[in-house]
């Protein structure tokens, strides 16, 4: 019986070495590629009919488009349209990564802190660059709003700075922790099934329920990831 953490192990499939760096194509890379292929195939084939009255698949594709389009319109505003492809790719990548991980035996690349941190870092650096490019030094108003009494700067600036700098951390840790914990719980309860023999039926029922919950979490976490990206974009574009 494999331990509950074994499912997170990175196993090289095609070893690649560039200088000192190990850039091997691993099981994680494989599932990233699968996610890209699944997303693209799903969107392209479902829209092939270009039906005026959409089929089931086509309306799923349209729904994913409209969810993100509305999210950007409501949270960022009209000038957020430029970032729509990015937020959409981000949402679909995280969503499909989370959902693929729920297939038994599959690898969940979103359960790795370095992957979620990589995405969060891109968002953090991107929004900061957009904010500075757009507002120049006014971008610093994000840490000290104009009109506040000067002496409050002692409190406000550190608080705002910490909250700003903790964004990528909270964004990445939230997704990573949710995915990791969910899969660990599933594995631990699955272990009970084997231990209890005939009475293993009971943990199986729990397993079914938790799998349903994990599906919900997979979708919610992708949604949260995308909506927080929108909030950060809004701050960068409009400064509060």
């Amino acid at each position: 019986m494999a331990g509950p953490l074994e499912q997170f192990e990175i196993k090289p499939i095609v070893p690649i070495r560039v200088g000192d760096l190990d850039l091997s194509f691993t099981n994680s890379s494989l599932f990233m590629v699968i996610a890209v292929v699944v997303i693209t195939t799903f969107l392209v084939t479902s829209m092939r009919g270009r039906a005026l009255v959409p089929t089931r698949l086509q309306s799923m594709a349209e729904m994913s488009y409209e969810v993100i389009a509305n999210m950007i319109r409501d949270n960022v505003g009209m000038d957020g349209r430029r970032y729509f492809p990015f937020v959409f790719s981000l949402f679909m990548f995280v969503l499909v990564g989370n959902l693929l991980g729920l297939i038994p035996g599959a690898f969940t690349f979103t359960s790795h802190i370095i992957v979620t941190f990589g995405l969060a870092a891109v968002i953090f650096i991107g929004t900061t660059v957009i904010g500075i490019a757009r507002h120049g030094t006014h971008f610093l108003q994000l840490f000290f709003p104009p009109g506040a009494p000067l002496w409050t700067a002692i409190i406000l600036v550190p608080v705002e700075l910490v909250s700003y700098l903790s964004r990528p951390v909270s964004l990445s840790v939230r997704l990573f922790a949710n995915m990791t914990v969910g899969h660990v719980i599933l594995k631990v309860i699955a272990g009970f099934v084997a231990l209890l023999g005939v009475f293993g039926v009971l943990p199986i029922l729990g397993l079914v329920a938790i799998t349903g919950l994990e599906f919900m979490i997979a979708i919610i976490q992708a949604y949260v990831f995308a909506i927080l990206t929108c909030v950060y974009l809004h701050d960068a574009l409009h400064l509060h």
């Binding site: 990233m32 693209t40 392209v44 959409f88 790719s89 992957v115």
Partner: peptide, 30 residues
């Protein structure tokens, strides 16, 4: 290193595919 590298490769590929291929089609139909 490997995870970040493949994440970058896959995400850039996905972004290009979405921005150039998938999203314009959906937008057109809508």
């Amino acid at each position: 290193a490997s995870q970040l590298f493949w994440l970058a490769v896959c995400f850039v590929a996905l972004y290009v595919l979405m921005a150039r291929v998938a999203l314009p089609r959906i937008a057109e139909v809508l």
